[in-house]
Amino acid sequence: MTSQTATGAGAGTPDEPEATRRAAGVAESARANRGWWDRNADEYQVEHGTFLGDDRFVWCPEGLDEVEAELLGPAEQLAGRPVLEIGAGAAQCSRWLAAQGAHPVALDLSHRQLQHALRIGATFPLVCADAGALPFADASFDLACSAYGALPFVADPVLVLREVRRVLRPGGRFVFSVTHPIRWAFPDEPGPEGLSVAASYFDRTPYVEQDDAGRAVYVEHHRTLGDRVRDIVTAGFRLVDLVEPEWPSWNTSEWGGWSPLRGNLIPGTAIFVCVRD
C-alpha cells in the first residue's frame, strides 16, 4: 500500500528530502520508487505488518477484507486459478489467495519487499519486475489484483493497464485499489487540519520528494476519477464496479493521512473492478 497521499510541498530538513510538485517521467518515477521501497521496506512492514497480517487480503487502510468484499469472486471459486498480484509488497494478499487454493504469482518492483514475502513464508513464485513490462506470456492469468501497488506510482498508468490486460485471459478480472483522487485536494493529515481543501483537485502535477541534487527519491502521480475511468477504457478493459469503502466503526487506527475522523467524512480509497472482454 502507498506510504502517503501527496497534496502539498514543503522544504525538507537535512535528514529529509524536499517535497515538491514537478514533472516526473516513467523512468525517473520507477527509479525513485524502487529505491524508496527498498530503503523503507523494513520500516513499512514493522509499522503496518500487524494491520495487514501475514496472510490476509486487505484492500486499503479502511480495512476492507477480500473475505467480505469478494471483488475477485467468491473464495470457493478461486481454487486452481492463476492470479497475478502486482505491487505485492510482502505478498500477504497472495498468501491468502494460496490458502484458498489459487496459484498466485507475486510481483513487485522492490527486491527488499519480496524478501519480506520470503520471511513470512511465501511458497509461490516471487518476481521482481516493473509493472509496465510484465515478464509473462499473453493470457497467462485468470485474475490480477493490486492493493495500492504500482498504479499510484507510475507516470503512464495506461502502459501498466495494457500490460495487465495482455497477460489476462479473455473474461479475466483485474481489481486495483488506489488513493481516492479527491484526497489530493486535502492535506495529508489525519486530524482536523486534513479536512480543508488546500490544492486543486485538477492539478495532476506529480508529488516528488527529491534530494539536495534535485534527484527524485519518491514519486506519486495523481489521476482524477475521470482520468482513471478513461485510462481503464483506453487500455481495453470494461469497468464493472467502483468501490469507495466507508470507514468501519471497528477501525480505530491511523495510517498516514487515513483516520477515523477523515474516513467518516471523505473517501480515502477507490477500488476499480475491471474485466478483459
Rank of each mutant, 00 (worst) to 15 (best):
V243Q: 03
L134H: 06
T7G: 05
F176L: 07
T7P: 03
A102Q: 01
P248A: 07
A98Q: 04
E66H: 00
D156F: 04
L225T: 10
W250N: 05
I86E: 02
D54E: 08
T50E: 06
R228Y: 14
W59K: 02
F136P: 09
T179P: 02
E163D: 07
R173M: 10
V233N: 05
V275W: 10
P248W: 09
R228H: 14
R162S: 07
P61E: 02
A98N: 02
G101V: 07
E244Q: 00
T13N: 01
T50L: 01
A6R: 15
D54A: 08
D227E: 12
V127R: 12
R215Y: 09
Q100G: 05
G268A: 00
H103C: 14
A98L: 05
A155L: 09
R56P: 02
I232A: 10
R204L: 15
S259I: 12
L159F: 01
Q77K: 09
V208P: 04
P82Q: 14
R276A: 13
T20K: 07
A24H: 05
A147K: 05
L126A: 10
R21G: 05
L225H: 06
R31S: 12
E68A: 12
G191W: 13
Y207I: 12
T5P: 06
W250S: 06
P17D: 06
D15H: 12
L261S: 06
V275T: 14
A99K: 08
T50N: 04
V167H: 04
A147C: 07
E246D: 07
H180T: 04
A69R: 03
L78R: 02
P74W: 01
I266W: 00
L168F: 10
L71R: 02
V167W: 03
G172T: 15
I182A: 03
W250V: 14
D15F: 09
V46F: 06
I86S: 00
M1F: 01
P125Q: 11
V178Y: 00
E85Y: 01
H111I: 15
D227S: 08
F124M: 13
A198P: 02
R276G: 06
A69E: 02
D211R: 07
Y148R: 07
F57I: 01
Y44N: 08
D130G: 09
D188T: 10
S200F: 12
A131D: 11
A9V: 06
W59E: 00
E193A: 11
E163V: 11
D277A: 12
F153V: 14
I86V: 12
E70R: 12
R215A: 14
D42S: 14
A102F: 00
A155F: 05
D65T: 13
S249G: 11
S253Q: 15
R95K: 00
V208M: 08
P61K: 05
D54V: 13
E70K: 11
V154M: 07
D188V: 09
A235K: 11
L242E: 11
R56Q: 05
D65W: 08
T205H: 07
